[in-house]
Every structure is written in C-alpha cells, then in structure tokens.
Computed example of a mutant assay.
Amino acid sequence: MALSWKARRRLSLLVLLVALPLYVVVAISVVALFDRPPILLELAIYVGLGILWTFPLKPIFKGIGQPDPEARDGTED
C-alpha cells in the first residue's frame, strides 16, 4: 500500500527533524571509535554517509515540494 501525500509529508518532516540528526550523531560516533584517518579519507567517509541515507528514503521525499495532487480546492492541509 502506497503512502498518501499527506502521510509522506509528515513522515518526511519526522525524518528531517528527528531521524537525520540521530543518524549524524551515530555516524560521528562510529567514525570516532577508530583512530583518526587522513583528512581526505575522513571527508570521503562523511560524504559517503551523507549520501547513503538518501537512497532508502527517496520514495518518502519524492513529490513533497509539490502541491497535494488529491486536493480539490487547491488548498493545502
């Protein structure tokens, strides 16, 4: 069952406000467990982790910036 536009919008807000900051804290904590790598390798790790979270969540964010396709009178919420 596909999520409605409203549900995806709420879920995307939850992801951006709660899950993403938690992901950042976990990523920094995991990298800090190891000896500090060379700066370019550390940069590559953070860039890779920064891109990695988007792939499983792409369907949630797709079309969120557009008006509600199911709205009849053109108003949102």
Rank of each mutant, 00 (worst) to 15 (best):
L43I: 08
L14H: 11
S12A: 12
R72Q: 14
L49W: 05
D73C: 09
G74W: 10
K58E: 15
I64C: 03
W5L: 00
L57C: 08
L57V: 08
L13P: 00
P38Q: 08
T54I: 06
V18D: 15
P59I: 04
A7M: 09
M1F: 03
L11H: 01
L52W: 09
T75Q: 14
A32I: 02
A32M: 09
F61L: 06
V26S: 06
A19Y: 13
K58N: 15
V15R: 00
R10T: 06
L17Q: 10
G74R: 08
L17S: 11
P59A: 06
R9H: 14
I45V: 11
D77P: 15
V31S: 12
V25E: 14
V26N: 05
S29T: 09
E70Q: 03
L14Y: 09
V31I: 14
V30T: 08
I28P: 00
I28L: 10
L13E: 10
F61V: 02
A71Q: 13
V18K: 10
L3W: 07
D73W: 07
A2V: 10
G65A: 06
R9S: 13
T75R: 13
Y23T: 00
L33P: 00
E42H: 02
F55P: 00
L16Q: 11
D35Y: 06
P69M: 05
V31A: 15
L43A: 14
E76V: 04
A27Y: 05
L14C: 11
S29G: 14
R10I: 07
K58C: 14
A7Y: 05
Y46L: 13
L17H: 07
I64R: 04
S12K: 00
K6W: 05
V15L: 15
L52E: 12
L40F: 05
F34R: 03
K62G: 01
A32F: 07
S12D: 01
P69G: 05
G48E: 15
G65R: 06
K62E: 15
P69R: 03
W53Y: 09
R9N: 08
L22V: 11
G50I: 01
G48V: 09
W53N: 00
P69Q: 05
K58V: 13
R9L: 13
W53D: 03
L22A: 13
K6Q: 12
I28D: 13
L16R: 09
L13Q: 08
V26A: 08
L16T: 07
L40K: 04
A44V: 11
A27D: 15
P67T: 01
P56V: 02
A2E: 14
L3C: 03
L22S: 12
L40A: 07
G50R: 02
L49Y: 05
V24Y: 08
S12N: 02
L33W: 14
T54D: 07
V30Y: 03
M1A: 04
I45Q: 09
P67C: 02
M1P: 01
E42N: 03
F34P: 00
E42M: 03
D35S: 11
L20H: 06
A71V: 09
A32W: 10
R72S: 12
P56L: 03
L57M: 11
G74E: 12
A19F: 13
K6V: 06
V18W: 12
A44N: 13
T75S: 14
K58M: 15
L16W: 06
R36F: 12
I60C: 10
I64H: 02
L52I: 07
G74C: 10
I28H: 06
F61G: 01
D68L: 02
D77F: 10
D68Y: 04
P67G: 03
Y23E: 00
P38R: 04
S29H: 07
